[in-house]
Design a protein around this nucleic acid. Structure first.
Length: 922
RNA sequence: GGGCAGUUAGCUCAGAUGGUAGAGCACCGCCUUCACACGGCGGGGGCCACAGGUUCAAGUCCUGUACUGCCCACCA
């Protein structure tokens, strides 16, 4: 049977549940995440496991979920985000804190509206065919229909959120909060309405905030155009947008530009239209770019708008909100702007005013929702004057809120320092309608939380509500307190605000984090989070940012289906230290699925041995109805006094891991936590400890009882350590183990973090174990490199380095014999080496493996040469160091001493090996 | 233009307070050892981008260079 065939056969057996062990054990042979996860999800939900009960003493722990788009799909970024939050929540629960994790969804104004509009378009209709009310009703239906989708996906990740507190940005409570905030800011003069040049999407037909515009470099052209001067001659102007020419209201040059000094204050004539344009001076103009003269079009360029304000220029709109030329564009009226560009150029050409063109790459803004090129557009919009809010928000970091990693603080400050007023009105229908009404009678503007019955000034009844809705981020900005009940006080708001930590990607630091800080501080007087953890952004295969609407999302559900949620979560956790740019590879998830399976099988092994044929055993996995002790005694008591280096060692390592993991989590070093766990479980518990107790298990009697007690304790606590990262497999195993541990809770999610056992911290013992491991590894290496069949037992002489080591090795004779497969082991400090023999030095001990009957002299000679070279290289390196007087004098004495000992050891080892090699010469 | 990251094994990436380089996958050899072939044991593979500097000692600190990526601003 080939390797492949065997693999297939094994998979088949596991899949069909027909594995050879099936009837012998109560955990199936292979871990099948699908079934286990469904069962625990259902159970946690049914039992409301994650609804916090009355706050215990001590500080509660709370997180509000970054709300995903209600009709969106979970992408890998969400999966990562959720994993981190869930890890923190589950860990905090273990630490005894009252934990609230609030779930919810965002109405995602433009994105959701776009989706529904696309649907309509497929039916050949537009939103205008339905009318506002019917359209909104349709979006709500869509939301009801598809909202369950994202909810199920959050559940699939194992997120321990409290579903009884789920919120939606458009639900009644949150909408009330939105109106309250709007009205209050308006009364405080921090919300105002005005004309402004905004980023306009001619397709979405709405204004966009600056950070909703995405820039992309596109090849374009710069045209040089001659503007005739009133007094004769020309002035050369460079432009990338000739179609805006009809909207020019001035020409600008640099005040110190010698070429144009004489022209300042004079007039130029606008080509094709003949309007007189003042030539003004402003230091904004870059003398070195183009001709150094600039046409000023306040209505269609951000910078020109600023210039226009400064110099009191006329603002002439020539492109309408659909991207077509208006009537005042003369002969170009009615043309789409792209057409107009061609026509303008043709006309200039004809008039002999086009001097030339050249290639030019420039950054063009695009709508982050639909990708359409953004048109600067002057219109009446609502704004938040954010300066006063931003000052407070800036000062709160790091005093009130610490940002991790700290480097992001700088980005945060930078943004706060350069902040511009926030345009919050959007010309769409899906969202929070702006609570402002205009009186038809007297024109009074009324801003109220609820629709007023009549105009307070003229008593008129004809009031018209502002048609616009608020930027989605406006309601998002209130999320940390609106979800906790604000504007009502008390309750959750009192208990859980400020929240403990916000977990989010850096891509929405400005959109969201900064604004939550501003609103939280302004309305509650406290920053909304004590800490902000900024994690890496998961990008798609090409390294592009994934976004809700761009459609380049990767579906983690596929990964879950293939490898299980725990494998995905562990992978993401192991990734979580990289500052940025995560590109998730499927192979890696697959690799960690092996880890999950390894854990599962370690548990199967334990259960097999824990089953005491003289005592009770649980009936079934997953139900854990045992409740009876497995051998009468409290299995946890007196672990530290169980003799046996292997027991002491694993308990010692367990204690170290128990300390290291929370330390890493506290500092958001999730990858370190994952690595620590991985190494402990696989390389130590499975590779060594489980092998070491097999003889104990076979021996029966007291050794077996002792091994079982240690194994049970270690495995249970290991499950607790793993649980925040891998909730499902640990819950299942915990439940299966619970029958052996004296009637404890079968739900690991409610278990406290294991208490430290100071008596089990024994570094000296760990050192002994490591020495034995080194000897065993040396023996295995000899076997492997000399191609000695695994079935062949070895005859070995070990010359221990000293009496201490001799005693330790003697004390673990059976361990050595078993794990290195020996048939004879002599431990003699002066023992005579067998000839021929393979030799190796491990931890100072000289090891000889008799090669009688397995002679492969050339192989052994080659091996010895390799070994010698390795030793010599290391020795020379260290000797070089020690010959350096500076090193010897300045480095810590213990380090120098260590190196000296090592050199001596190496020298001795080399000498021994050389001696042996002599014997191998042909 | 300004700022910030990254550059470590074939690939994807870890390497906190400076002390002889690690993981996963891939690769090579042996093994159907009674938890696991999603496994076991062993192995090969890296002058840690480059150039200087600080230090007894630098992947790790400093300066500069070269690529790559991101963020912010934007030049008509």
């Amino acid at each position: 049977m080939s390797k492949e065939e065997r693999k297939e056969a094994a998979e088949e057996a596991a899949f069909s549940g027909q594995g050879p062990e099936e009837s012998e054990n109560f955990l199936p042979r292979g871990y099948s995440p699908r079934e286990v996860e469904a069962r625990w999800r259902e159970r946690w939900e049914r039992n409301r496991t994650f609804t916090p009960v009355a706050p215990a003493e001590g500080e509660p722990f709370s997180i509000v979920i970054p709300p995903p788009n209600v009709t969106g799909n979970l992408h890998i970024g969400h999966a990562f985000n959720l994993t981190v939050q869930d890890l923190l929540c589950r860990h905090a629960r273990q630490m005894g804190r009252t934990v609230l994790w609030v779930p919810g969804e965002d109405h995602a104004g433009i994105a959701t509206q776009n989706v529904v509009e696309r649907r309509l378009a497929a039916e050949g209709k537009s939103r205008h065919d339905l009318g506002r009310e019917a359209f909104i009703a349709r979006v709500w239906r869509w939301k009801e229909e598809y909202g369950e989708n994202i909810r199920a996906q959050i559940k699939a990740m194992g997120a321990s959120v409290d579903w009884s507190r789920e919120r939606f940005t458009m639900d009644e409570g949150l909408s009330r909060a939105v109106r309250r905030v709007f009205v209050r800011l308006h009364r405080e003069g921090l919300i105002y309405r005005g004309d402004y040049i905004v980023n306009w999407c001619t397709r979405c037909h709405t204004a966009l905030a600056d950070d909703e515009v995405e820039y992309a470099e596109l090849p374009g052209k710069i045209w040089n155009i001659r503007y005739p001067l009133e007094e004769g001659g020309f002035i050369g102007i460079a432009t990338t947008r000739p179609e805006t020419l009809p909207g020019d209201s001035a020409v600008a040059v640099h005040p110190e530009d010698e070429r144009y000094l004489g022209l300042i204050g004079k007039k130029a004539v606008l080509p094709l239209l003949g309007r007189r344009l003042t030539i003004l001076a402003d230091s904004y103009v870059d003398r070195s770019f183009g001709s150094g003269a600039l046409k000023v079009t306040p209505a269609h360029d951000r910078n020109d708008w600023e210039l226009g304000l400064k110099h009191g220029l006329e603002c002439i709109q020539v492109i309408d909100d659909n991207g077509r030329m208006k009537e005042n564009a003369g002969v170009f009226a009615g043309l789409p702007k792209e057409e107009a560009r061609k026509k303008v150029l043709e006309a200039l050409e004809e008039a002999g005013l086009l001097e030339g063109e050249r290639e030019h790459v420039h950054n063009v803004g695009h709508c982050y929702r639909c990708g359409e090129i953004i048109e600067p557009h002057v219109s009446t919009q609502w704004f938040v004057a954010v300066r006063p809010l931003a000052e407070k928000a800036r000062a709160a970091v790091p005093a009130e809120t610490r940002i991790y990693p700290d480097s992001w603080s700088r980005t945060y400050y930078n943004w706060m320092d350069n902040i511009r007023d926030w345009c919050i009105s959007r010309q769409i229908w899906w969202g929070h309608r702006i609570p402002a009404w205009t009186c038809r009678g007297c024109g009074e503007l009324i801003v109220e939380e609820e629709a007023p019955a009549a105009c307070p000034r003229c008593r008129g009844k004809e009031l018209e509500q502002d048609p616009d809705v608020l930027d989605t981020w406006f309601s998002s900005a209130l999320w940390p307190f609106s979800t906790l009940g604000w504007p009502d006080s008390g309750g959750d708001l009192e208990t859980f605000y400020p929240t403990s930590v916000l977990v989010t990607g850096f891509d929405i630091i400005f959109f969201w984090v900064a604004r939550m800080m501003m609103m939280g501080l302004h309305f509650l007087g406290k920053a909304p989070f004590r800490e902000v953890y900024i994690h890496a952004l998961v990008r798609d295969a090409k390294g592009d940012k994934m976004s809700k609407s761009r459609g380049n999302v990767i579906n983690p559900l596929e990964m879950i289906a293939k490898y299980g949620t725990d494998a995905l979560r562990f992978t993401l956790t192991a990734f979580a230290a990289m500052g940025r740019d995560i590109r998730l590879s499927e192979e890696r998830i697959e690799g960690y699925r092996h880890f999950v399976n390894k854990i599962w099988n370690a548990a199967r092994f334990a259960l097999m041995h824990l089953r005491d044929e003289t005592g009770p055993c649980p009936e079934k996995a997953g139900e854990g109805d045992g409740g009876r002790g497995w051998s009468g005694e409290n299995p946890e008591a007196g672990l530290e006094s169980i003799p046996g280096t292997h027991h002491e060692w694993i308990l010692h390592r367990l204690e170290e891991t128990k300390r290291a993991v929370p330390a890493a989590i506290r500092e958001y070093r999730f990858n370190d936590a994952a690595q620590e766990l991985y190494k402990f479980v696989w390389s130590e518990l499975c590779d060594w400890y489980l092998e070491l107790i097999k003889p104990d298990m076979q021996a029966g009697g007291l050794p077996r009882e002792q091994a079982r007690r240690v194994l049970l304790a270690v495995l249970r606590e290991t499950m607790l350590l793993l649980h925040p990262v891998m909730p499902f497999v640990t819950a299942e195993i915990w439940s299966a183990l619970s029958g052996f541990a004296g009637g404890v809770s079968p739900d690991i999610a409610l278990e406290p973090y294991p208490a430290a056992r100071p008596a089990c911290i024994r570094p000296a013992c760990a050192g002994r174990m490591e020495m034995i491991q080194a000897v065993i590894t040396a023996l295995r290496t000899i076997r492997a490199e000399l191609n000695i069949a695994p079935s062949r037992a070895l005859r070995v002489l070990i010359r221990p380095a000293d009496e201490d080591r001799a005693a330790v090795l003697e004390g673990h004779r059976s361990m050595l014999v078993r794990l290195a497969r020996l048939e004879e082991l002599r431990l003699e400090r002066k023992g005579e080496a067998p000839r021929p023999a393979a030799e190796q030095v491990a931890a100072g001990n000289e090891i000889f493996v008799s090669l009688e009957g397995v002679v492969d002299l050339p192989a052994e000679r080659a091996r010895l040469d390799k070994e010698l070279a390795k030793l010599e290289k290391e020795r020379l390196l260290l000797q070089g160091k020690l010959e350096n007087r500076n090193y010897v004098e300045k480095a810590p004495a213990e380090l120098v001493e260590r190196d000296r000992r090592r050199v001596a050891e190496l020298g001795a080892a080399e000498e021994k090996l050389r001696g042996t090699r002599q014997g191998f010469m042909p």
